[in-house]
């Protein structure tokens, strides 16, 4: 799929999805994703099991992440090449948003 199609289909990502994909640059299980997200976002994004469970199965179905069974039979997830590309495009998109905001930030102060 070319970038334009990926952008149309997946962006913008929800905050939860963004953090889930961000945590999955390395293989990780459900509990690890929850912890990593909470740390990275300074507790502002929490992932409950219901939310995470649904998101993981959806992302797997869309082939943005893939699952491997760890030795302890726990499921580990990791970004696929497609998932990497989507996350890359989202970060680039967010960069533009943040830069535009930063340019006028001082005019918003009282």
């Amino acid at each position: 799929m070319d970038d334009q199609k990926l952008i149309q289909k997946y962006l913008p990502l929800s905050e939860s999805t963004y953090y889930i994909l961000l945590s999955l640059v390395e293989p990780l299980h459900g509990y690890g994703i929850m912890q990593k997200t909470q740390q990275a976002s300074n507790d502002s994004v929490k992932l409950g099991p219901g939310t995470l469970y649904g998101a993981l199965s959806k992302l797997e179905k869309e082939d943005l992440i893939s699952m491997t069974l760890a030795e302890d039979r726990r499921k580990n997830y990791q970004l696929t090449p497609k998932g990497k590309r989507v996350l890359y495009l989202e970060i680039k998109r967010l960069e533009v948003l943040v830069n535009n905001g930063a340019a006028i930030l001082d005019r918003l102060l009282p």
Partner: peptide, 10 residues
């Protein structure tokens, strides 16, 4: 408060 659903979509 403990929740199992933490975002609007889910």
């Amino acid at each position: 408060i403990a929740e199992i659903y933490t975002d609007r979509n889910s």
